[in-house]
């Protein structure tokens, strides 16, 4: 059975930068995505082509969700391109290795050139960090005092009038500190969910191919493709909810 790598292998070095197979594949996915969307854009017409139908219907789906999530319509319009591209990137990245023969290309040392970029923890982790970081940067730029005050609720101590009030204030401070842990948990849950699903799907196919090489792995391949499709929807929708929650909260009273 093939060795399983949680860490994607280093192919070569480029100015002291390790180019791993996951990184190389994500570059290929990015180029493919740009070509696909340019192709969809070139043929815009009143009678839509196939590419245009696919691009427009996914855009409308996310537009509907974004408009209902954000209270501020200007803000919703600003986030639409990011969420839309996030969906397409993750969709293509999840399905990358079902292209025939692409998973079998190896260099002289037997290291694979390509793997699903999302089956390396670094890509989902980078996306999740970016989403949660962006939500806090936006909230800080809208209402800095209010946003920090939402986590460090020491102002509650000033309102204390009795012993029971003191207890409540301490509880509030404790809950605020718990929210900070909650923000870190968001990063972990977003990234681990995507990584775990894609990695588990690939590993399951690998095990099934090892046990019975023919016919039997096919349902598992379908399951993996289906899971990849679902999680391409889940990741942008959840990051949208996180962004909207933090930003709406900052905007509400300012």
């Amino acid at each position: 059975m093939q060795a399983v790598n949680v860490k994607s292998p280093v192919l070569f070095e480029f100015f002291n930068l390790n180019i791993t197979s996951g990184l190389l594949s994500s570059f290929v996915v990015a180029v493919a995505l740009i070509l696909f969307l340019l192709l969809a854009k070139r043929q815009f017409a009143l009678v839509p082509s196939k590419f245009q139908i696919i691009a427009e219907s996914t855009l409308l789906f996310f537009k509907k969700n974004i408009d209902s999530a954000f209270e501020d319509k200007q803000m919703a319009k600003r986030f639409l391109p990011m969420i839309f591209v996030m969906f397409w990137f993750i969709l293509l990245a999840n399905q990358f290795t079902i292209l025939p023969f692409i998973a079998d290309l190896t260099n002289n040392d037997g290291v694979k050139f390509f793997q699903s970029p999302t089956s390396d923890i670094n890509l989902p982790l980078a996306w999740a960090l970016m989403v949660v970081g962006l939500s806090h940067v936006m909230a800080l730029s809208i209402a800095p005092i209010k946003h920090i005050g939402g986590f460090l609720k020491f102002g509650e101590l000033l309102k204390v009038r009795s012993i029971g009030g003191l207890f409540n204030a301490l509880l509030e401070i404790f809950l605020g500190l718990l929210d900070i842990i909650g923000e870190i948990a968001r990063v972990v849950s977003l990234s681990a969910r995507l990584f775990g699903n894609i990695f588990a799907g690939e590993l399951m196919i690998m095990v099934m191919v090892f046990i019975v090489p023919y016919i039997i792995p096919i349902p598992f391949i379908f399951l993996s493709i289906f899971g990849g499709l679902i999680h391409a929807f889940i990741f942008p929708l959840l990051s949208l909810q996180y962004l909207a929650l933090t930003i709406n909260n900052a905007q509400s009273n300012s």
Partner: peptide
């Protein structure tokens, strides 16, 4: 339902990631 299931599934996925980490990392 699909979205809710995928979110619900995530705790199983964390367990799976932990199992992989124990086995391979």
């Amino acid at each position: 339902m699909i979205v809710a299931m995928a979110i619900c599934e995530s705790t199983a996925i964390y367990a799976l990631v932990v199992a992989f980490l124990i086995l391979f990392a």
